[in-house]
Amino acid sequence: MSLAKRIIPCLDVDHGRVVKGMNFVGIRDAGDPIEIARRYNNAGADEITLLDITASHEQRDITYKTVEQIASQVFIPLTVGGGVRTVTDIRRLLNAGADKVTINTAAIFNPDLVRESAERFGSQCIVVAMDVKALHDGSGRYELFSHGGRNATGIEAIEWAQRMAHLGAGEILLTSMDRDGTKGGYDLLITRAISDTVDIPVIASGGVGTLDHLRAGLTEGGADAVLAASIFHFGTYTVAEAKAYLAQSKIPIRE
């Protein structure tokens, strides 16, 4: 008996519709988030993540409504993020039915938000999302990016993960910008490095193209959960196929 590794379909939502970008640009419509979330709930997904990429405050009300509707029909954990800036944003998302909230850019500009929200709502619902890129300067180091991957921060990724865990983050959602949308597999080096460094769970994200990429993220990468979008949205694989493959590879999975 042991804790199962989690498979998490990710819904990138823009103006209330699920989309999936290619390296954060060039977006293809994949449908209605409520319908898709319900489908994944029934298909055996372990959790659902919804990232609101609209990132403009005036559109936020659509997100709260979407979260409410998903939460009333989905009986697995729901993580929501995108544009979260304040404790009030977090409270509103939790009240709308999110189980966990991801903080990304706001954590970079105001690390204290992580501490404050973890104290107020509990570490278990505070996920720090990190968009990272390899520096390719021979140092083997990775840099953290803000604003949905648009701005370099000069912050080194592993140190940042440690700092966030120390401030009270309950989980890290690690996205490799180099791999995102490429279908070339997760960046296993940085996934392993961060997973080995922090004591909180790490979710690998960015680059899944095959079922073996999921396996590699959990074994070589040492991740506690794997997140994927397009392979599931466009029907390349079902969640059940992914689970069967991982079970065959002797990875503990909830069947």
């Binding site: 804790l3 989690r6 989980e171 922090v198 909180i200 909830r254």
Partner: peptide, 14 residues
Amino acid sequence: TKLKVPHMGWNQVS
């Protein structure tokens, strides 16, 4: 194997 805290996810109940 290092076990992360929180104990977060699906576990079996005996």
